[in-house]
Amino acid sequence: MNKDVSIVIADDHPMLLKGLHDQLEDSNYNVISSAANGMQALEAILTLQPDIALLDIDMPLLSGFEVVKMAKDKGVHTHFIMLSFHKEADYVTQAKALQIQGYLLKEDPFFEIERCIEAVLSGKYYFSKSFEDNILNNASKEIKKLQLLTPSESTILKLIAQRMATIDIAENLFISARTVEKHRSNIIRKLGLEGETNQLTNWALTNKSTILEL
């Protein structure tokens, strides 16, 4: 029944893109479009509404994460799977923040892609077996903490991640500096960052990519 599964694939490495295309076709999947950059991938997803989009993260014009965010904002029902060389925790956290169902490493064997496709089509999450459990668990914990924030707190955290000072945030949001400080205190408490004065700023800068995806 693989022919019933429509797939868009995207990777800016021509050989990797062709190899993935050929393997999927050989396994009787219906590859309806191949893209060499993020903009092409987004256009294909919005136009063709595939069941699955297999996306590289590092692509020209738009990253894989940006493609997912923009496609989701348009209300598409495509299931997303990231294919990447990145094993770092912050990439996993970003994927979880965007509620991406699948994340595989390019070193994984092809049968893992098939398992992942089957899982996400069933509404499940499937992350590479190469990820250590602590990376997945820590990423989930960070996302749960961020979900505790109110919309106002999330907005302020995003501005902090962009290196904006309290007074500038206050002017930007038309509120008092005192109100910003109160929100900062609440954010620090909810994220469990009690301690150094600059800890929230440092944490926001370290996790900037994830914060801005919220």
Rank of each mutant, 00 (worst) to 15 (best):
L205W: 11
Y103S: 00
T197V: 14
H77E: 09
A41R: 01
A95C: 10
M1A: 13
S130G: 01
Y29N: 05
F80P: 02
A41K: 05
I135S: 07
S130K: 15
D22V: 12
L62P: 03
K158Q: 14
I211P: 03
S33E: 13
Y125P: 04
T210I: 12
K3Y: 15
A95I: 02
M15G: 02
S154V: 12
E181F: 09
T155P: 02
V5R: 03
Y103Q: 02
N172E: 14
K158W: 08
N207H: 13
N202H: 15
L98S: 01
Y29Q: 08
I113V: 14
L214T: 04
M82Q: 03
R189T: 09
L48K: 09
L193Q: 07
N186A: 11
H183K: 14
K144F: 08
S128D: 12
R178Q: 08
P50T: 04
M70T: 04
L121E: 07
K145R: 15
I187D: 04
I100D: 00
A170P: 04
P151I: 10
K144E: 15
G123A: 10
M82A: 07
H21L: 13
N198W: 12
I187K: 12
F85N: 09
I211D: 01
D12W: 09
F174A: 10
I160Y: 06
V120M: 11
M59A: 05
I167Q: 13
L205F: 10
S185N: 13
S122M: 13
L98K: 03
I9N: 01
L61N: 09
L214R: 15
A139M: 05
D90S: 08
L17T: 06
A97P: 03
D168F: 07
A44C: 08
S34Y: 02
K208P: 03
L98T: 01
E66P: 04
M59Y: 07
L212R: 05
L205R: 11
